[in-house]
Amino acid sequence: MTRVEPGPWRYFASRVVTAAFIVVGAITLLFVLTQLVRGNPAEVLLGPRATAEAVAEFARRMGLDLPVHERLLQFFGQVIRGDFGVDIISGRPILDMVLEVMPFTLALTFSAIALAFLIGVPLGCYAATHPNGVGDRIAAVLSVGLISMPSFVVSIYLLLVFSIWLQWLPVLGAGGSGGILDQLTRLVLPTSALAIGWIGYVARLTRSSMVETLAEPYIRTSRAYGLAESKIIYKYALKNACLPTLAVLGLGTGRLFGEAVFAEVIFARPGLGTLIYTGISTRNYPVVQAGVFAIVLLFAMANLATDMAYAWVDPRIRAGLRGTSAGRR
């Protein structure tokens, strides 16, 4: 067997294949799991007084009469065709329903991750360059505190303080019909609620990898050549130190799509989370499947983007000399 020369394209191809495996694996798992949930969706939707025939007919129309592996194949067929069928409750195409709410989830998730990095990375750098100082200690306590607070608890307190007591920010909704300013102000609280834990996490991670990087011989080289300390930290060290943080970015974005469910439900925002939440409470599996598929796809894409960013920062990964996120350290 001739060995393919390692290089950027081979790396890219391997990451795409991995992403495809993640999507297929996650969807298969989802189908197996929905089998374990009790309750016939048709019975739930039609109520206790429905006749057996009506229930059977409804189940057939939802495609729930087939065995699970056939439904799985059917679903992948739908994915390939880009057609998820029609929602039996609202009578609208499911794809439209998903695409309609997706921008809200994307806006929420990306603004949360951006906030977490914009605050977390400088905080981590500061702590690393002033080790054991007052600022470092305060940052440490704050970070751990923020990490350990669940986002749904934070959400409720944020609502209470800023919307109800202070009345600075709107309570609920996404401001869909309002202007862009209205939409942005309604994004503030859910974004903060989601980001707050990640700020602490990113700060801790950046601090530890920064401390480690600053002890590397190549940093001593930079110092030996009289480079300004700020340039050493924010150019020479940060580019190395951000690698582990970058690895977390991918996983973090993926997890944020999940955490967004809470924020969307609590703040009554439209989004994939709300869509899936209502879908599950009515056992509306076709909608749940399409919604979860969208999240899985976004997760895989976020991971792929991270791997690309990783390779962009570290030339050794581009050259295939070094593993990525999972293989590092």
Binding site: T221, N240, D314
Partner: peptide, 24 residues
């Protein structure tokens, strides 16, 4: 001291494998 380093005093380090920054 910083202005002396890389200007009037320079240093070559022992291990060239680790003395250069891998991402630049």
């Amino acid at each position: 001291l910083r202005s002396l380093r890389g200007h009037r005093i320079a240093m070559i380090f022992q291990d060239p494998m680790t003395a250069l920054n891998p991402v630049f």
